[in-house]
Simulated scan of single mutants.
Amino acid sequence: MAKAERHSNPFGWILLGALVGAIATAGVLLMASSMNFNRGYEEGPTEIRTAADDAAAAAAAARPTPVATAPKPEQPAPAAVAPAPAEQPTVDAQMADDAAAAGMTSRAGSEQPTN
């Protein structure tokens, strides 16, 4: 009998251990799901109010007092300002290359060579 025990196949014990482990895991999950972890939740307050909630409610309930504004003095119409002539910035070839490389081709002058 010692010879049979020495050369036994461990696959049966592995299968039995996996089966027992699966059953034990299912039992623990069943017990954990049936427990009432939220005990006391229904008995507590329906809303937890803080000082900030009370201050916000008080501010919303308070009517704003109308602020009397002083009449604005009449301002003279601004004199028509002549627009300054728009000058085209000088764009050299290096600046145009940098603008084209950055994807800003609309800003680069088309009259400048780009190498």
Rank of each mutant, 00 (worst) to 15 (best):
A2R: 06
A2M: 05
K3S: 11
E5W: 08
E5N: 14
H7Y: 04
N9H: 12
N9G: 10
I14T: 08
L15A: 13
L15P: 01
L16P: 05
L19D: 05
L19N: 08
V20Q: 10
G21W: 01
I23V: 15
G27V: 03
M31C: 04
S34M: 00
M35P: 03
M35W: 07
N38V: 10
R39L: 10
G40D: 01
E42S: 15
E42K: 15
E43A: 15
E43W: 03
I48C: 01
I48F: 00
I48R: 04
A51W: 00
D54E: 12
A56N: 14
A59C: 04
A59E: 14
A60Q: 08
A61H: 02
A61M: 00
A62K: 08
A68D: 11
P71M: 03
K72I: 01
Q75R: 15
Q75D: 08
P76N: 10
P78A: 09
A79G: 09
A82G: 03
A86T: 04
A86C: 06
E87Y: 04
Q88G: 08
T90K: 09
T90C: 05
V91E: 05
D92T: 12
D92N: 15
A93C: 15
M95G: 09
A96H: 02
D98N: 11
G103E: 07
G103L: 09
E111T: 12
T114I: 08
